[in-house]
Simulated assay, not measured.
Amino acid sequence: MYRKFEELGITLGGASYGFFSGEAEFDVTGHPVAIEVEAAAVGQPDLRLDIAELVRERIGLRDRFGLGFLEDSDERVRAHVTKWMLFHALADSLVERYREDIEDELSAARALRGTHAA
């Protein structure tokens, strides 16, 4: 399932922040797996946040900098942490915004599996 979004905010401590636009891809369980965030300025590249790529990047950073890699001040670690946190915050907001769509998709998939089982 894919959904475009505009002016999506993230919630931190009960307050909303940001106006993100882009497109999200959800897996068969209704969880976002990739989020394409439109750049704020013309001519800048969009930001692709793909959970599989982020996990691979995280493993590589841990291998390079050790178990405490999140405390390292290396630019690669700081950029990764920002992307990791942004992905998760946007994913939470997307699940909330598209809750009904996700539930409908999951129900339709269950019904389809039920017809194949009969």
Rank of each mutant, 00 (worst) to 15 (best):
D46W: 05
F69Y: 14
R76M: 05
D72A: 12
D27C: 11
I35L: 01
F69M: 04
S107N: 10
K83L: 06
L106F: 09
L54A: 09
G60L: 10
E103K: 15
K83T: 07
R62N: 07
V77C: 02
E38M: 14
R99E: 10
L49A: 07
H31C: 02
E71L: 08
E75N: 10
K83A: 11
D27W: 10
L49W: 13
L94R: 02
W84I: 03
V28M: 08
R64F: 06
E105G: 09
D27G: 08
R58Q: 15
F65K: 11
F69N: 02
G60V: 03
D50L: 13
E53S: 08
G43T: 12
R56S: 13
L54F: 08
V33A: 02
L70G: 05
Y98S: 01
E100M: 05
H31S: 05
A52N: 06
H80N: 05
L47P: 03
R48C: 01
L54I: 10
A79P: 01
M85I: 12
S107G: 10
E105V: 05
V42C: 08
E53L: 11
V55F: 09
Y98P: 09
S93G: 02
L70V: 11
W84E: 07
A108R: 15
A89E: 06
E96Y: 06
E100W: 00
L47W: 07
S73T: 13
T29G: 09
R99G: 01
E103M: 13
E96D: 10
I59K: 05
L54M: 07
L70E: 08
M85H: 03
A89D: 02
